[in-house]
Amino acid sequence: MIKIDNLFKSFGDIDVLKGIDLEVEKGKTAVIIGPSGSGKTTLLRCLNLLEIPNQGNIAIGEKELSFHSGTKLKSTEMTSFRQQTGMVFQSYNLFPHLTVVENVMEGQVIVLKRSKADAKKRSLDLLAKVGLSDRAEMYPHQLSGGQQQRVGIARAMAMDPKVLLFDEPTSALDPELVGDVLKVMKALAEEGMTMVVVTHEMEFARDVADQVIFMDEGRIAEKGTPEEIFTLSTNPRTQQFLNKVAR
């Protein structure tokens, strides 16, 4: 479903991604872990072109893009590529001027040109799925962080993406709210959604991931099954990182 080849990205003089190769199969969940500054979030943001890589290849579904220094992507190319993925943000980024159900409807009506009635029906179904049916007519600021994040997931799902991207979806949440969000994510993974998740929740990685990717200093230092990474790894950087988070 996703194939990344030799991906490079730098911000000014700082090289953030230094040759990433990665494949994620359809229906699988890849969890990216690693110290802050290792390039996890940048890699994720490259997948929906919120960052434009300097070099390399990204293929998602049937669409493939090659990047070279100085590539200027057409905006139609970018939007059609983006429409294959949905993204859940660390800070939710819900639209504050729209109600919860309008947040979920917005992309369906404006981008997918669904009728309002269809979009609303789909939105209410999704809100039921994330356990927020009773919040549909509220505004985002009236919701807790965990509830807002679940709306964020519903908003991303509403576009019927091939892949869901999660950028540290629980990092901004109070500890007692993390569980509800992870539960929704786990359910999606079990339904066969293809997901790429950047997170610090090692429990989730161990539990849900088909593939764990450990990133360090802009490279993939190690990847494998949760068992290979969390139990069997002999890579000193991986062990050092895991020790730190465990503490």
């Binding site: 980024n93 404006i110 981008v111 908003r155």
Partner: peptide, 27 residues
């Protein structure tokens, strides 16, 4: 208007013009 609002609009496949009209300007 926070950058995250643009990004959220892009992430659901909006063009710049759509994001401006539907998400940024109302705020």
């Amino acid at each position: 208007t926070p950058k995250g609002q643009w990004e959220a609009a892009f992430s659901i496949g909006m063009t710049r013009a759509q994001a401006m009209r539907r998400i940024i300007l109302p705020q």
